[in-house]
């Protein structure tokens, strides 16, 4: 035992309770939207997506479901980036120390940071579904063709789930890598790598069928998911969302903060 070299006062009873988790989520959500990253990224995502949706309705066919699904072309790139930027912001700006000074239990901060990008994604999806109807109506009227108003709830729910999975994969990688450019480059190159792996060989295709989120989640977008598909989806989420998130949380908790 260390001998008592300093006068030791009894621990003062600290009456204030710990910060409730909903308050951390509230603050993190506000932090997400009160900076350019959140605002601009959400706006850019909506603008680019709406652009490609209009393009689809105009040059292909004005079908509500088709217009909703084409958004995936943009969202699959931008949502992971949004997730990454949402969690790396504190490390890019050196504000992590300020945050941890107010809540030293860092795991709670990591957990609360999962929410804002998911909230932003849900809002974006809701807006886009509404917009899809408007675009379909407007474009069919302008082109003088009949609109197809068939709406597939199962496929739309699948599309929503895929978007949430994508943004969470960005959050998880961002938490693990803690550096926005590196994480974004990783996501971009891995997307390219998977498309090569999938066509490279039979083995490559088999690997992609289990581990590439883009491949495993395709049945969700069709609105028809078998048990076998669910297993593959779960495995790929485990590898690209849960694993990096857990490793990242360990890294954040252990890390010395500047």
């Amino acid at each position: 035992m260390i001998s008592q070299t300093v006068s030791s006062a009894p621990a003062i009873r600290l009456d204030s309770s710990s910060i409730p988790f909903h308050r951390l989520i509230n603050v993190e959500t506000r932090k997400f939207f009160d900076t350019l990253v959140g605002q601009v990224l959400t706006d850019v995502t909506i603008v680019l997506t709406v652009g490609i949706m209009i393009g689809y309705a105009w040059f292909m066919e004005p079908t509500v479901q088709g217009v909703i699904m084409i958004s995936g072309a943009v969202l699959s790139i931008l949502l992971p980036a949004m997730g990454i930027l949402a969690v790396t912001s504190e490390w890019s700006h050196g504000t992590a120390s300020t945050t941890f000074a107010l809540e030293p239990r860092r795991v709670r901060i990591v957990a609360s940071k999962l929410f804002p990008p998911v909230i932003a994604t849900a809002l974006t999806c809701a807006v886009l579904v509404g917009v899809a109807f408007v675009i379909t109506g407007a474009v069919s009227a302008a082109r003088g063709v009949t609109a197809d108003w068939t709406f597939d709830p199962a496929a739309t729910a699948g599309w929503f789930s895929v978007n949430v999975i994508l943004v969470l994969s960005g959050v998880a990688l961002g938490t693990l890598i803690l550096n926005a450019p590196a994480a974004i480059i990783f996501v971009a190159t891995s997307a390219m790598a998977w498309s090569l792996i999938a066509v490279s060989s039979k083995t490559g295709a088999a690997i992609a069928a289990w581990f590439d989120i883009g491949t495993t989640t395709t049945p969700l977008l069709d609105g028809r998911v078998t048990n076998d598909d669910l297993v593959r989806i779960t495995v790929s989420i485990g590898v690209w969302v849960l694993l990096p998130l857990i490793l990242g949380a360990v890294r954040v908790v252990r890390r010395e903060v500047r």
């Binding site: 009894p10 003062i12 600290l14 204030s16 309770s17 910060i19 000074a101 107010l102």
Partner: peptide
Amino acid sequence: VLGSRYAKLHNPGRH
């Protein structure tokens, strides 16, 4: 700080 490790404080900004 105040008799305990900082990380053990609840809502440390208040103290």
